[in-house]
Each structure stands twice: as C-alpha cells, then as structure tokens.
Amino acid sequence: MRVRLKVWRQKHAHRPGGFHTYETPELNPNMSFLEMLDVVNEELTQRGEEPIAFDHDCREGICGTCSLVINGKPHGPHRGVATCQTYLRSFRDGDEIVVEPFRAKAFPLIKDLIVSRKAFDHIIQAGGFVSVRTGSAPDANALPIPKPDADRAMDAAQCIGCGACVAACKNASAMLFVAAKVSHLALLPQGKVERERRARAMVQAMEAAGFGGCSVTGSCEAVCPKEISLEFIARLNREYGRALLKGPN
C-alpha cells in the first residue's frame, strides 16, 4: 500500500511553519505508523532533505513520548493506543493522512511535530507525590489496602503523560492528566495524608501553565491511550473543593 502524507513542518518555534506533502514508497500494512515515518525519513535523508522530526522512544505504548495528531485525532484512529501502536492496516491504500503536532499554548512547538511537555513536569513537581523520605517507610504489608481501591488507583496511575488529553480537548485542558495523578494518590491511604495540599498545588500549577478549563466534552477520555476515565476529573473537582473548604495549609 501507499499513502499520501500531509505533514506539518516547522524549522523552529520562531519561524512560520506549513504543511508539506509526501508520497510514501510501497508500505507493508503490518508496519507501525512510526515505522512508516522512519521509511519516509530514510528517503528524505537520501535525497538530502531534512527528515521529519517527531518524538518517539519505547515504541510499545508506555513511555508517553510519541505524540502526533493523525487526521484530527491524537494518537490516530484507534481507541486505547498510542501513535506508536497504530498500524498501517488501520488505513487504506491511497489515503491522505494529515499529521499535525499537538497544539496548546502550554505545549510550545520545538520543531516539526515535536512539542515541549515540560508543563506536565511542573505540575507533578508542585504536588504529584507522597512526601516520604527514602528509608523511612514501614513494612509494606503494615497498611492493608482494599483491593478495589488499589485497582482503582492503578486505573488512574496508568497515565503515561503523553499529553493527548490536552491535544484532544477543545480547551487544551490538562484536567485528565492532573485528575489521574490526584486520584491515584487520593485513593490510597498513603496519599490521603496530604491530599488537600496536593490538589490545591497541582491545580495552581496547571492553571499557571496556561492550560484551559474542563468543558466536560469527554474528548480526553476518548483519545487517552490508557483510557483513563472522566470519572477521575469528577474526583479531582471533589478533591479541589474539599481543599478549598479546608483552607490553605
């Protein structure tokens, strides 16, 4: 099969960018989408052109490095997978595929399809942790945790920090990302100790980074490679409200 790629190219943040169209060589439907970009890049390099810059690393859907908005949807057509787990058999021979970078004020563009997601690190630094020093922990089994709570916490903790939720949201909101971390820790007794401080600090960091608010459209959940539920956003709203009522601490 062959496809036509319409790819956003931009040398760096301060230069204007635009779409370039590339006809791919013959492809194998079992290739991953990123392997297809590898093939295109090999051709470009051989022709003496600069290859398309795109983020990727583990190529098995867990590191959260890959991004891309493929035909208007972050991480491509399928639910519950990242771009690196998208295979060409999801497209048809002759398709035109539009590839854009994640767009958000809080994710400034670096080059071509690569954006900076540092804002996520800043949010976690503000409160996405349990304040425990190495070596000070009690025995792991000293604190029984109901299995449903642990499972639920794991559902939230699966977030890979890719930013697709932001890319998909019409408001470029990071609520699902923040909600996942706040919920993961709020569901566990270890995390409950500083839950108010965490919710307040992480929300403040999120707003300072320039993300939009939540309009409950559900796009984030629909594109999340780990299918993290919108329900966690409700939990974040609850946690934050609780923090407001308890006052600063």
């Binding site: 922990a137 792991a140 299995k147 499972d151």
Partner: peptide
C-alpha cells in the same frame, strides 16, 4: 518494596 508502597505505587493486592 516498603519504600515503593509508601510512595503510593499501586502494587497488586
């Protein structure tokens, strides 16, 4: 294991 549990790592239970 103690350290990770204290950090909130959601191990299977």
């Amino acid at each position: 294991i103690d350290q990770c549990v204290a950090q909130g790592v959601p191990f299977a239970r």
